[in-house]
Structure formats: structure tokens, C-alpha cells
Design a protein around this nucleic acid. Structure first.
Lengths: 136, 136
DNA sequence: TTGCATCCAACTAATTCACTTGGACTACTT
DNA sequence: AAGTAGTCCAAGTGAATTAGTTGGATGCAA
């Protein structure tokens, strides 16, 4: 049970963009966050394809957020790199378990699933940044 | 982000034991839950080492719970097979991240961590069984 | 036209997962 | 005493996933 690198880096990258007043270059994110420039390629691509950031072209180019910081949740970032959270495989369309109907564990896993999703969904980039500022 | 097989099977096995009025053989669990008898070896060993089940020896032998069903939580089962939940590796003793102090994501991952733990901890085997009975 | 910066596909080494194999031990049965 | 059923335990394995790297194509700008 781990959060993978795509999601961790993706979150850090989008916060880096959110905190900057001007468009940010991939190179700058890589340097400030100490992530390999090349590896960041796929992270940026994920965030971009998910419609969370856009590429500002022309002079002073770089990446900016596509939405407001309180319209982007951790779950949005998660979804930029992974399919919908599914802690267990039983009972999805493609892989239904035969004992699904009288399995006492299935309901719990599903519950846990949706609580996780709920927590991630309610935490926005705005909150992440604000909470950190308050502590420092 | 998946719940692994040890934990899923372990939970099913312990419920199987909990629901039985007499001691249960490993073989019976394997059959009822459709889990490979050999693979179940390590699952049973995990539950046993964690002190959740005991081996009833002699005639009519088999496994029984070591505690009451409301004293065993999903988290106990989780811990029988995995170290403490750690969704991200930053800032554990062995692997502290340099940017830990001003990282806006760290606190969130830790929060998520402890919420997960809390949810698993508060769900007991007793509740799992009861909730299922009510539905059926 | 040279150089950034982004875009994109393929490769890889290391690790993890979900088992299987095979054998040792122990208690009970006959 | 021998056989067997059940448990215990270590090692092996094939497939999948992870966390990257490599190398090049494309497109804009000085």
C-alpha cells in the first residue's frame, strides 16, 4: 500500500506551479523539486492531459494552472496518473468474484475505498498551500 | 494502491474461523474460501504469529480465535502481514527527505495515513460479521 | 541555424506479488 | 511400529509493476 512516484511528484509539481506568480518551466520544477528533468516529462504530460495545467506558449513560456487552486484536489492529481481507486479487484465489471454476494469483506473494502477517495477529493491544492503557510 | 493478497485472504480466513462454532482446520478454510492449501500456510502463520489465532491441539484440533471478535480489528489483520501503514517513505527514520520541513505534501500524506489506520482500527471482525448478517 | 524546451516511445534493472515446490516435524490412528 | 494427516518452514519462480534512463523528433525563438 504505497502512493507511487507519479502521484507524489505530480502533486509537488503542481504545487510548485501554483505557488509561482509567473509561468514555470519544466526545468525550474525539476531543479526546485530535485526531480530528474527527463522523468518529469511524463509527470508534466499526465497533469497536462488531465487538464490540470496548460502550456503558456510564446515569450516567457511555461506552465500555469488550468483551474483555480481550490478547484484542483489531490484526487484530481491522483486520477491524472491512475485509474479510479480500487483497493481490491473483486466485483469490478471485468473481474467479478463468485463469492461476492456473501463476502463479509467486500463491503468493507468498498467503504474504505470511498472514504479514501473522499479524503483526497476534499483536500485542494489551495488548502495544502494554506496549511503549510500557517505552520511556518 | 492495492490491498495485497495476504491481507485479503487473512481477513477472510479469520472470519471463517470466527464464524465457526468448532475449531477449524486449515484444509477447511482452504476449501470454503477457495484458497490454495499451501498458500494458506503463510497466511495462517501470519495470523498465528500476530497472536490473533491459536492452534487447538489434540482430538478435534484446528484453529480458534485468540481473542474476542470485537477485540480483533481489520488493522490487526493488516499488521499481521505488513509493517505499519506508510503511504509514502519520506521522513521515516531510515529515509528522511531533505525538503521534509517545507514540503506541503508531507503533512497530507501523514494525515491520510493516520485516517486510513483509524478506519481499519475501528472496524472489528464482530462488526464485519454483524453488518453482513443484517444485509442478508 | 543553432539551441532550448517540450514531446514521445522504447528500454531496463530492481523490486514486489502471488503463488508453487518440496521437505521436515509431530501427533494421532491402526 | 508404521502410516498418515495436518502443520511448519525455507527456497524457488514467473509475471507484473516501479522508477526510472536513453535517445531522438518536433517546434519555437534568438
Amino acid at each position: 500500500m504505497k502512493i507511487n512516484t507519479n502521484i507524489r511528484y505530480g502533486l509537488r509539481a503542481i504545487i510548485e506551479i501554483a505557488k509561482s506568480e509567473k509561468p514555470v518551466l519544466q526545468k525550474e520544477i525539476a531543479e526546485r523539486q530535485d526531480i530528474s528533468l527527463n522523468y518529469l516529462d511524463s509527470i508534466i504530460a499526465g497533469l497536462k492531459n488531465a487538464g490540470l495545467i496548460v502550456n503558456y506558449e510564446g515569450k516567457g513560456s511555461g506552465y500555469v494552472l488550468a483551474k483555480k487552486t481550490n478547484d484542483i484536489s489531490v484526487y484530481n492529481v491522483y486520477r491524472a496518473f491512475s485509474p479510479d481507486i480500487q483497493l481490491v479487484n473483486c466485483s469490478c465489471e471485468t473481474n467479478e468474484c463468485q463469492r461476492s454476494n456473501n463476502c463479509p469483506t467486500k463491503d468493507f473494502w468498498f467503504e474504505l475505498n470511498s472514504q479514501l477517495k473522499e479524503i483526497m477529493n476534499s483536500k485542494t491544492i489551495e488548502k495544502l498551500i494554506e496549511e503549510k503557510l500557517q505552520i511556518v
